[in-house]
């Protein structure tokens, strides 16, 4: 098959991306089944998905957990106002901590929002998360750095983001997905 990296340039690849985004078929040969749905051979699906993983278009493939029902009930967004010339070093040091589940540099937004480094900590309760934040501040040399801790009090909407619009195909069956 033609090696086309961009799914938007090949309708079969766009259909494949659409077909797997809600989940892989739970059958012994899921890539063969996906291929049947979108008009590719099993080998082509294996090659394409492998390339997407290698190139980072798919960040990871496996179980996508819902953290709340798993007992991770405290979820804090911790934001820091760190010097712009040190944000990379600090961000990398921060993200190396196992309990940090996301870490981003984002723009400041005036006086209302002076913070430029965001990290997410998921823990079983607020007490343990607060202890982890202290540990993080110590480890990253940020004990005197302005920060805010924003626990989530309610979650209104949670779903897997869908990035592609429906692509016409002969078979619109998708993999299994639970509505969030």
């Amino acid at each position: 098959m033609a090696t086309v990296n961009d799914p938007r340039e090949d309708p079969r690849l766009a259909r494949l991306l659409e077909a797997i985004q809600s989940g892989l078929p739970l059958t012994p040969r899921p890539y063969a089944e996906l291929g049947e749905r979108v008009g590719l051979s099993e080998g082509e699906v294996v090659d394409t998905v492998s390339r997407w993983v290698r190139e980072g278009l798919i960040k990871r493939l496996g179980v996508v957990v819902r953290h709340r029902p798993l007992g991770y009930r405290a979820n804090a967004m911790v934001v820091w106002d760190v010097p712009d010339d040190r944000v990379g070093d600090i961000g990398r040091r921060m993200s190396a901590h196992e309990f940090v589940t996301l870490c981003y540099r984002r723009p400041r937004r005036g006086e209302d929002w002076p913070y430029n480094l965001f990290c997410m900590i998921h823990g079983r309760d607020r007490h343990s998360v607060n202890a982890q934040i202290e540990l993080l501040a110590e480890a990253c040399g940020l004990t005197d750095t302005p920060r805010a801790v924003l626990f989530s009090s309610r979650c209104f909407k949670q779903r897997g983001a869908r990035y592609l619009a429906e692509v016409p195909s002969g078979d619109t069956r998708s993999g299994r997905m639970r509505p969030a």
């Binding site: 809600s22 892989l24 798919i58 993999g175 299994r176 997905m177 639970r178």
Partner: peptide, 21 residues
């Protein structure tokens, strides 16, 4: 299948890098 049925997983499959799409 059981983990999906119990709602412990949102799905079994890929996590995309949205910007690369």
């Amino acid at each position: 299948e059981g983990l999906l049925d119990q709602g412990l997983l949102s799905r079994f499959g890929p996590l995309y890098h949205a910007e690369r799409l």
